[in-house]
Design a protein around this nucleic acid. Structure first.
Lengths: 365, 365
DNA sequence: CTGAAAGCGCTTACAG
DNA sequence: CTGAAAGCGCTTACAG
């Protein structure tokens, strides 16, 4: 993958000059001091006398001066921005994550550059290239599926630290912040087992994605620990959207005895599954137990409310920002991997005891 | 409101220098050309010979050079970023809007600076000040409630064009992109009237917000055009969240005859209302008709699906970005006000004919 | 086609 | 306490 060399702005010309901008020089001459003194006032330096400071500040307000942090950062070789690259802002999980990043950055006076990739590796390349040229202190990347470490590194360069979130990219020399997917699915499965379910499906996601594989492994582990040999037909794949999940519901009931519960890949899938169940006359939370993953806001508001594994994306966002800024301050420390803990939230969708495993014959269709 | 004069970075020091950064000078000397020539190569200028160009490009790749667009923009007095200030990223309406802005900006090679205010005027001030210092070509502002034009202008300065979205700020000399709130509520009300409803409530929102007032006025207009004198108790205020709406449902049924339908302030409120109705044993879409506003993704997936007024936040985001960039190119043209059209989407939540108005006695509790 | 020079708006030693 | 000077990384007339 070659870096994008053309800076000709083929797409659109950059914005033309506006009304002449007020600079430190304007303030300096109006206040009768040198530019250096204005700069010291701006920096809150104690070297400047109170009278001088007052004069300069009055002039700053009078002329509506706006500090040019870009110029300052250029001179100081510093940065006060962080780039965030996510898949899709309309996914509430990523929106919450971005909100967390924003919170943490605002607290330390940094600004967030945000772009989304729509899960396209090519768009990710373009977007990373564009963001990195703006000189962020670092990049938080929730990588598109199929991202390769060398491609990311080629476009980001060696200069800018990267923190990868959510999905590992093999071979990267960067920090990683992940979620304990296996443990979350294990907890969800154990919860269903504790309610007496023996035929439990894992519903949704694609085995190609690492988070799906990890969740499946936690699910399988819990089943095996309970002495249950999982059946292959309990593993139902589907794209992680509500609509696809609703449409795939039938796959659970192709043969008797059907599962009485399902661990869904995530909340979107779980909500879709509940829709699909309802459409078949199966009441989720009554005839069939469902758990989700993520605890998006909707999980607490759906009917029935959705039992799910809370991953707290907003807290993860804050954490990611903090970790990245630590890395910026200590570029040479070895890369870290952090796996955030998860917590099962039991709600109505799984709040029933399974019928006895031997007599239960859910002949549903 | 005084501008924030202190640039001392009290909160956190800006990031320290990283490994030495590769510059045009490094490429130039390695390729045996001047910095100007490298710049011309970067700019895709036809003045450079093919052999020279190839040599320079090879060197750029070899050294992992990353273009410093900040420095270039400083020199050219240009900008390739746009700032977006919204209330809350975890609100799907704003998340979709931001996604639209992002799409449009990415298409023209601009970068998005994003921050949220949490509906706080003070945080909005701080966030605007911080963003504007990074020199965006313009600012898209979805103002926090209570924003005042002079405060915004004081902190943004005269140099940076502003486009206000969603909520008007009195006295601003900027472009405004809004939604036809009155027309949307009028359509929703007319739709319910056409189904035979005569006692129709307007549910949710606060009369203090201009969008709520506009929606109420469309609702009232539709009722009056139908010869119905609206009753004061049909106007139920509540904060625009699902939970608050569910909790306020009872206010509709304090006296007989109760309304048989409600125009909800927005989708969150409508979904909460449907929950509140269900909790009282009233089936939304069967015993009581509900319409929402916004058409968030969930509206199509709720049970029953929610009739609503589509405002297409993503399209609005794209439009806002386009309008702002037009303004950047033509700073002197007079401010524009655009009111985007809306479209009623009829779904199950309103898909029943009202019982005859005279015999109907919904003695519900 | 290529190079030397000036300058964007700022900061930071260094003198005074 | 304040000012003159250099320089961050780039671009752009202007010569040649």
């Amino acid at each position: 993958m070659r870096p994008n060399l053309d800076r000709s702005n083929a797409v659109t010309p950059p914005s033309p000059p506006q009304r002449r901008r007020v600079t430190v020089a304007d303030i300096a001459s109006a206040a009768g001091v040198s530019r250096a003194t204005v700069s010291l006032v701006l920096g809150g330096s104690p070297l400047v006398g109170a009278a001088t400071r007052a004069r300069v500040e009055a002039e700053i307000r009078r002329q509506g001066y706006v500090y040019n942090r870009g110029a300052a950062n250029l001179r100081r070789k510093a940065s006060t921005s962080v780039a965030l690259v996510i898949n899709d802002l309309s996914n509430p999980f990523f929106a919450e994550f971005a909100a967390g990043v924003d919170e943490a950055l605002a607290d330390v006076g940094h600004v967030m550059l945000l772009a989304s990739t729509g899960e396209s590796v090519e768009r990710q390349r373009a977007v990373l290239a564009s963001l990195v040229e703006h000189g962020p202190a670092g990049v938080i990347l929730s990588p598109a599926e199929g991202s390769r470490a060398q491609d990311v590194r080629a476009v980001v360069g060696l200069h800018t630290p990267v923190l990868v979130f959510n999905r590992e990219v093999e071979g990267g020399d960067w920090d990683f912040l992940g979620t304990d997917n296996a443990e979350g699915a294990r907890q969800a499965t154990a919860h269903l087992l504790a309610q007496g379910h023996r035929r439990i499906a894992f519903f949704g996601g694609h085995a190609g994605s690492s988070s799906c594989r990890q969740r499946r492994s936690g699910y399988l582990q819990a089943l095996r620990e309970a002495g249950i040999e999982p059946e292959p037909r309990w593993l139902v794949e589907c794209t992680a959207t509500r609509l696809q999940a609703a449409a795939s519901t039938g796959a659970l009931f192709v043969r008797d005895p059907a599962p009485t519960a399902a661990v869904a890949y995530n909340d979107a899938v779980a909500l879709g599954l509940m829709l699909g169940l309802a459409a078949r006359g199966i009441l989720p939370g009554h005839d069939f137990a469902v758990t989700g993953f993520d605890d998006i806001p909707e999980a607490a508001a759906s009917v029935p409310t959705l039992s799910t594994v809370a991953t707290e994306p907003r807290a993860r966002g804050r954490q990611a920002a903090t970790l990245l800024l630590e890395r910026v301050r200590a570029p040479e420390t070895p890369p870290r991997t952090l796996i955030a803990p998860v917590q099962l939230v039991a709600r109505a969708s799984s709040a029933f005891t399974a019928p006895d495993a031997t007599t239960n014959r859910t002949t549903l269709r």
